[in-house]
Design a protein around this nucleic acid. Structure first.
Length: 269
DNA sequence: TCGATCCTGTAG
DNA sequence: CTACAGGATCGA
């Protein structure tokens, strides 16, 4: 599930649940989840620590501890982080967990086990995120920055949006939705897209992610979490063969970088 | 820069 | 059975 909006919702939930919690233990069911570190290092380094802050950077969740070190959690495709009333009640798909002093638990729940949890010293922060672009809602994400980044690469527009360099947070769904909203052809080399459309794309990114953050928070807050249907109005993603909401042409699917891109061949030329 | 790879589940 | 999945990294 997680692109930026879902990660934001999870992070906020974590902040409200785990702030101030003292870690007394933990476990790793799947060693691959802490790769390239070891369970011993990740768990040994957190025992006795208190959780002081939770924040999001791109699609990463950062859990700051009272000694300055921090956990970096990446949910990848199917991960979720949750705080449980009792750490012993964790589901079979919990790949990693922490025990709190008050008996509660915090888990990485991840059926595919592609998610990652690693522990870092403060000094590692910069190198860790050196390749990440600006946050879409920050002052650093300017139209000018975006247009310059676009002119600098031969990548197709969709790949350009997905690689977390020009801006962080877009994944397969919201990249497709932003491209549709701006009427940009996903396969077109982004450096060849007109300035007018690039500006529209810039606005669409902020718009789409903004709406999606709101719906993700709403979805995550009510019972059943993200599973309770769809709040974000998806126009093209996953809708192969269905009519484009703008012109009625059938939505198409094409492979790009090993993934599916959905688009309207009429609106996005 | 690109395909293979990491994993498991589900739909067709 | 194969194809595909809201992601990223690695080696060729």
């Amino acid at each position: 599930m997680p692109e930026l909006p879902e990660v934001e919702a999870v992070t906020r939930n974590l902040r409200s649940m785990a702030l101030g919690a003292v870690i007394t233990g933990g476990g790793v069911y799947r060693p691959g989840v802490v790769h390239p570190q070891t369970p011993r290092r990740v768990l040994g380094g957190v025992r006795g620590r208190r959780i002081d802050a939770c924040e999001r950077r791109g699609k990463n969740i950062l859990v700051h501890l009272d000694n300055g070190h921090f956990l970096r959690i990446h949910l990848r495709m199917t991960g979720n982080v949750a705080v449980l009333p009792d750490f012993r009640l964790r589901p079979a798909t919990a790949r990693w967990w922490l025990e709190f002093e008050d008996g509660r638990g915090m888990i990485l729940d991840d059926p595919r086990a592609l998610g990652r949890v690693t522990l870092h010293a403060p000094a590692e922060m910069e190198a860790l995120f050196a390749d990440l672009g600006p946050e879409p809602f920050s002052d650093a994400f300017t139209e000018r920055h975006f247009l310059e980044a676009a002119r600098r690469t031969p990548k197709p527009a969709k790949i350009f949006l997905m690689d977390q360099k020009a801006v962080v947070g877009l994944g397969n769904i919201y990249a497709a939705e932003a491209l549709f909203q701006a009427r940009v052809n996903p396969a077109r080399p982004v450096r060849d897209v007109s300035a007018v459309k690039l500006k529209a794309l810039y606005r669409a990114i902020v718009e789409v992610l903004g709406v999606a953050v709101d719906s993700a928070i709403t979805a995550y807050t009510r019972p059943g979490g993200f599973e309770e249907g769809e709040l974000f109005p998806v126009a093209v993603y996953g809708r192969e063969g269905e009519p484009c909401p703008a012109c009625g042409t059938r939505v198409r699917r094409m492979p790009q970088g090993g993934r599916s891109t959905y688009y309207c061949p009429h609106c996005q030329k």
